[in-house]
Design a protein around this nucleic acid. Sequence first.
DNA 1: TTTTTTGTTGATTGACGAGTCAATAAACTT
DNA 2: AAGTTTATTGACTCGTCAATCAACAAAAAA
Lengths: 197, 197
Amino acid sequence: MPKLGMEPIRKAALVNATIVEIGRSGSLDVTVGQIARRAGMSTALAHHYFGSKEALFLAAMRHVLSLYGAEVRGALGVSAGPAQRLNAILRASFSPANFRADVVGAWLNFYVLAQTVPEARRLLNIYQRRLRSNLMDCLHSLAGTRAGAIADGLGALIDGVYLREALAAKPSDGAAAVQLVLAYLNAELSQGAANAG
Amino acid sequence: MPKLGMEPIRKAALVNATIVEIGRSGSLDVTVGQIARRAGMSTALAHHYFGSKEALFLAAMRHVLSLYGAEVRGALGVSAGPAQRLNAILRASFSPANFRADVVGAWLNFYVLAQTVPEARRLLNIYQRRLRSNLMDCLHSLAGTRAGAIADGLGALIDGVYLREALAAKPSDGAAAVQLVLAYLNAELSQGAANAG
DNA sequence: TTTTTTGTTGATTGACGAGTCAATAAACTT
DNA sequence: AAGTTTATTGACTCGTCAATCAACAAAAAA
């Protein structure tokens, strides 16, 4: 009994199921069958809506990245001043929605996907550039010419914390992650102040 | 014409070929056939010596980790004083032998392997613990009670730089990587000094 | 010299999985 | 009412790949 207008619902279900399955299994070797089953439909239907497994993976990546982007934008919207804005970016990066076992697992595997699939690489590059530019906006007034180097360090550190989280036995602790990155940031900033003074 | 004593030679060739193939293709989806061909033998022989693909992957991981470990030990052997020893660890981490496109690609995929294969996870945990303990030895005298936090940050930052390298378009620049991590380290240390003074 | 051990591979098996197809059914259009 | 579009799936094709096997060759041991 085909209800019309299923397409967006089915697609959303498949995208979610993809993230969950990749995260759960910790690998890109999930079958379309597994994903479709978790999303409550047949493999044929998954192919009907996405055409290929790769397209489904890319849609899942876009979804994760856009959720992250939205959360950062939301946090920035209510923050004034560079220091608070930096804080907002970090809190968004390690928010409960993003810093969750399955999402982190998916993230790691998206890095692997980017090794093979140009479009996946493009998406990750966009994410990295946007993060960098957000950081730079704040750092310019706080660290002057050292803003670029600090932004690079922060970006790598955030990714590294994610990577280690993917391997960690313990449950995620976003607050601790924010603290770790903030410690780095404060160290860099106070060193700049020391040099300037 | 079977020359005797081939086992270690064949095994070494297979391990190298595994690292190269995983790095080159950027994925664990390399076939035993590809690896065996690159190592100059048949698939059957690869199975004969390693028994399974998984065992071959694990051997490749052990090899990468042991090369890294040896390089760190070598560098530490000729370094005196905590600051120089920290420097040695970082230089070894980003040495031309380790910080190379295919090795970095393999490293990334070993993280993925660790999601599924307990033995792979164990090996990575050993690497992380050894790195941390090496860093702590140096940091204890330089940063006192903050040594633990700084070691965690350094570990995550090193992994993050590796991760970003796996995505980078440009050729590896180990010197730049060392500089970036050193900047972090100096910032943390000088902040400690500032706080102390 | 016979036997055993080591090295080596082509061919085969068996499983699995992506993507296609044909068919069914309900809803909208004309 | 007839035709079209959307939703849905079971069954199938086709390819791939890990792992096994049977066989052969040469060295070492007996």
